[in-house]
């Protein structure tokens, strides 16, 4: 569906050039909800803008449905863009137009006859559940409603792909949920490929099937969501996963010594249902104190994260940790 090959983007600065994207390669398949997560400045917004050439890559190629969009002239590019929907963090609706007129805009420029436009507007308003707001102006809507209009507008010309640039970042958690549900519904009912840029782990966790983690202009990790987040290898990925788990209170860190150590355990899938901890306690002379923890439901699998305190002889603690690692539980020592 979307193939990104060796894309580089350099912004020319006054004193030095900034490499916003470095050798990005990505393959997004038909029907994917593909998440791109990273902190601000990681280059994810630049990357998504390279897909519809709002940003021109310095080097590299982008294929959509097998067509190299870097080779298009400006008229062809405009036609291509009509088939790429995009929604934004700040919605970017036309304030001078009503909800219906906003949704009509992309169809007007695609020269859709008025009658067909009206029919499509009704359909879309029904899809995003805003029928009663047809004649309202954006200033009369809440953030969530504005984003629904944004989604309806993006879908107006039956796009092949929907690009979401931090689409839920300006919304409260409850509204975020409802927008994510709507995106999921659209993905399932229309089979639409969705690319989501976010810095919120919740978004990835809720609806994405695949994820790419970006840092400093590079993709540091990518793959199916459960796989990437159950065994994060890169520190930035770990920090995102831990974010959805728990932060460790300072008081706990202050009482660490040789006979009292803190560990972060991560495990996934079927292991969450096995009593590995109690087996460890029985087998070795250690006590385990569960301080924080939780099991998260990530798409079709579970990932667990526990912070435990092991109390006992230093040697016994080491053996206990070795046992956990043999049982495919990742153990990470937490130091002060």
């Amino acid at each position: 569906m979307i193939e990104i090959k060796g894309v580089y983007k350099e912004f020319k600065g006054k004193s030095n050039n900034v490499e916003a994207l470095k050798n990005i390669n990505m393959h997004i398949e038909q029907g994917d909800i593909f998440g791109i997560i990273g902190l601000s400045g990681a280059g994810k917004s630049t990357l998504v803008r390279c897909i519809n050439r709002l940003e021109e890559p310095t080097k590299g190629e982008v294929f959509i449905k097998g067509k190299n969009i870097m080779a298009l002239n400006s008229a062809e590019l405009r036609e291509m863009r009509k088939k790429i929907g995009m929604i934004f963090q700040h919605f970017n609706l036309l304030n001078s137009r009503t909800v219906a007129e906003n949704i009509a805009y992309p169809m007007e420029i695609a020269k859709v006859p008025k009658e067909d436009r009206e029919k499509r507007i009704d359909e879309l308003l029904k899809l995003v559940e805003l029928e009663e707001k047809r004649e309202s102006y954006p200033s009369q809507l809440s953030g969530g409603q504005k984003q629904r209009v944004g989604i309806a507008r993006a879908l107006a010309n039956h796009p092949d792909v929907l690009l979401c640039d931090e689409a839920t970042s300006a919304l409260d958690p409850k509204t975020t949920q409802s927008i994510l549900k709507l995106l999921k519904k659209i993905n399932e009912t229309l089979g639409l490929t969705i690319v989501i840029i976010t810095h919120e782990m919740e978004v990835i966790k809720q609806i994405c099937t695949k994820v790419a983690v970006m840092e400093a202009g590079e993709v540091v990790e990518s793959g199916p969501v459960p796989k990437v987040f159950a065994h994060p290898t890169h520190p930035i990925t770990k920090s995102f996963v831990q974010n959805i788990s728990h932060d460790i209170p300072v008081e706990l860190l202050n009482r660490i010594d040789h006979n009292r150590q803190l560990f972060r355990l991560s495990f996934e899938g079927i292991k969450t249902s096995q009593p590995i901890l109690s087996r460890m306690i029985k087998k070795y002379g250690v006590e385990a104190n569960i301080l924080l923890g939780g099991i998260d439901h990530l798409q079709q699998t579970f990932i667990g994260s526990l912070i435990i305190e092991l109390i006992g002889e230093e040697g016994e603690i080491k053996k206990a940790v070795a046992f956990l690692q043999e049982s495919d539980v990742e153990c990470e020592v937490i130091s002060q």
Binding site: H90, N92, I109
Partner: peptide, 14 residues
Amino acid sequence: DKGIVEAAVAMGSS
């Protein structure tokens, strides 16, 4: 708002 113009460009406006 620059974002509104960007959205219009993204939709394929001339």
